[in-house]
Simulated scan of single mutants.
Amino acid sequence: MAAQVSPIRVEVIDGTHFRDIETGDVYRLSGIDTCAPGQVARLSRQPWPCGTMATAWLVNATLNKWLACVTVRENGGERVARCASASYPDLAAGMLHDGVAVLAPSSPEEPVIASYSLAEQQARKAYRGLWSSVFQMPWDWRAQHSEGRRAVAKEARQ
């Protein structure tokens, strides 16, 4: 693992991505996923913008704060990383604990981190955040909505 040498300040892109304001490097938090921008969950019959909430959580956790990030790997122009601030020893674990993120599907490049699994289990048991609601897993929502965008684009070309 390559460590980020100096602390960084960031601007949030969405619930899992942010950009170093000095270098422009894009980071994605390792091991988690969040609702996509525009994605909605339902608490009883009331919809709420879970993608917006995840982004807001990350903005609140990083605004005017220095982050220390350890890059796990590079992937398509972004740094997949584990990051911490003075308030959060691990941002991804904090998001899982508060129920605004879910564990990402594991892969050989990104195995499940035991403490992340525990944080998600605790959030589920306590019905925090997403776990108090009905929602679609972010990767399923994205797949469904990207198919819809492709179908609309195809109809527009015909």
Rank of each mutant, 00 (worst) to 15 (best):
M1Q: 12
A3Y: 06
A3T: 13
R9N: 13
E11D: 05
D14K: 02
G15C: 07
F18G: 01
F18W: 05
F18I: 07
R19H: 07
D20R: 06
T23C: 00
G24F: 01
G24S: 04
Y27K: 05
S30E: 06
T34Q: 00
C35R: 03
Q39P: 02
V40F: 15
R42Q: 10
R42I: 00
P47M: 07
W48P: 04
P49Y: 07
P49E: 05
C50K: 03
A54N: 03
T55I: 05
T55D: 06
A56L: 01
V59P: 00
V59A: 01
V59D: 02
T62E: 00
N64L: 13
T71W: 06
E74Y: 12
G76H: 06
R82T: 07
C83R: 06
A84N: 01
Y88I: 01
D90C: 08
L91W: 01
A93I: 04
A93R: 08
L96D: 06
D98H: 03
G99N: 06
A101W: 03
P105S: 09
S107P: 04
A114T: 11
A114K: 14
S115D: 10
Y116D: 02
S117T: 08
S117G: 14
S117N: 11
S117H: 14
Y127W: 04
R128G: 11
G129I: 06
W131S: 12
S133M: 01
S133I: 01
S133N: 10
Q136L: 15
M137Q: 11
M137L: 14
P138A: 15
W139E: 11
R142C: 03
Q144R: 12
Q144M: 10
G148R: 15
G148D: 09
R150I: 12
V152F: 10
V152Y: 10
A153C: 13
E155I: 10
R157L: 15
Q158I: 13
